[in-house]
């Protein structure tokens, strides 16, 4: 950012960059939904959306406009204020993580809104706020399905949050920093090799735990119990309609992209990919992760609730702690 030394110009640049980032994230979200519907369609041997615009690319614009002009009412006997605030919290929590995610633009040009030294911690703090959105939404709706869905979801999210947090600790131990840029640019000097390395090679177990916990954290199949249609109608979403429903949906897909971007940054060397320009490399990695999400949804049946909690507490948590201990011992022992 040394390019912009004059103070006012600097803040103008930051504001424009934020607006641009929000626009990109929103657009990316819309096309993630399109991508999911098409990919899921192919998995289920049907074409998916293909009528509105070329390849159905305008389907999401049509859906968005339709939903915006639908009645977005607040049911009787709900807690009106909380009912309106809940989707707002969801979207805010989803957006705010992007403030600290760095994006490699071109070979030596990177951009980030805020370059803080507690980057990953901040992302966890923001994404944890999502629990409030779901619990408040479920509680305020005054609906039995909503309340059950909200509570289930809260228990699920907090259970997997620990595994998620602990799965990244080995990465921080190796790199020695929470700043995402440092983690991406972590270089190793092993014999003849000297350069950046995808950290998945050093913490493979951490990645597996991260992947499972991240799918659970974003409420995606096969961990989509909060909105298990067959038993809970829509879970916390049951009473939401119109733009408020869109906001919850938006938050879910933004979270998917955030988690994919984080996986790319933390485990796959972010914007480094051989000779491919950084921004394209980063994009490719995120799209591959999003495809993995969709693939999981198209392949696996939903877990039962007791299986879900057992996996979180009895498998992932002890495994994550063991991973931290082993990595710590190896790291200190090899350091001498």
């Amino acid at each position: 950012m040394s390019l912009y030394n004059d103070p006012i110009g600097h803040w103008v640049v930051v504001t424009v960059a934020i607006a641009l980032l929000l626009f990109v994230v929103l657009t990316a979200t819309a096309y993630t939904v399109w991508f999911e519907r098409v990919a899921l369609g192919r998995i289920q041997r049907r074409p998916g959306p293909n009528r509105v615009g070329p390849f159905g690319l305008l389907q999401l614009a049509a859906d968005g406009i339709k939903l915006a002009f639908k009645e977005s009412f607040v049911p009787a006997e709900t807690d009106k204020l909380l009912f309106v605030i809940a989707p707002t919290i969801a979207v805010a929590a989803a957006f705010l993580s992007w403030a600290v995610i760095p994006i490699g633009l071109w070979y030596n040009v990177q951009y980030w809104i805020a370059d803080v030294n507690i980057g990953v911690l901040l992302i966890f703090a923001f994404s944890s706020l999502n629990v409030y959105a779901i619990v408040i939404g479920g509680y305020a709706s005054n609906n039995k399905y909503s309340l059950l869905g909200g509570l289930r979801s809260a228990a699920q999210l907090i259970s997997y949050e620990m595994a998620l947090g602990l799965s990244l600790v080995p990465t921080f131990m190796i790199v020695g920093s929470l700043r995402l840029r440092d983690i991406v640019e972590y270089t190793v000097h092993w014999g003849w090799y000297n350069g950046p390395i995808p950290l998945i090679l050093l913490t493979p177990i951490g990645f597996v735990i991260y992947l499972m916990a991240a799918v659970a954290e974003t409420n995606r199949a096969p961990f989509d119990l909060p909105e298990a249609e067959q038993e809970l109608i829509g879970g916390f979403l049951t009473e939401y309609s119109g733009l408020k429903f869109v906001m919850f949906y938006l938050a879910e897909y933004i979270n998917m992209i955030t988690v994919s971007a984080l996986a790319a940054l933390l485990f796959f060397g972010g914007w480094y990919l051989w000779v491919i320009p950084p921004v394209i490399a980063f994009f490719i990695k995120i799209v591959l992760f999003l495809f993995l999400y969709i693939w999981l949804r198209g392949t696996f049946p939903r877990l039962r609730y007791d299986m879900l909690m057992r996996l979180g507490w009895k498998v992932l948590l002890p495994l994550a702690i063991a991973n931290v201990i082993v990595t710590g011992i190896v790291l200190v022992a090899t350091q001498g």
Binding site: S72, T88, L96, A99, I113, A114, V116, G242
Partner: peptide, 27 residues
């Protein structure tokens, strides 16, 4: 380094305010 974050928060809150208002106005 946290000031851009603050700006970000304010812009996001503005966007959300607009969305919530629209959800009552439209439709």
């Amino acid at each position: 380094s946290y000031v851009p974050l603050l700006i970000f928060v304010l812009i996001v809150l503005g966007l959300l305010g607009a969305l919530v208002t629209l959800s009552f106005v439209l439709g």
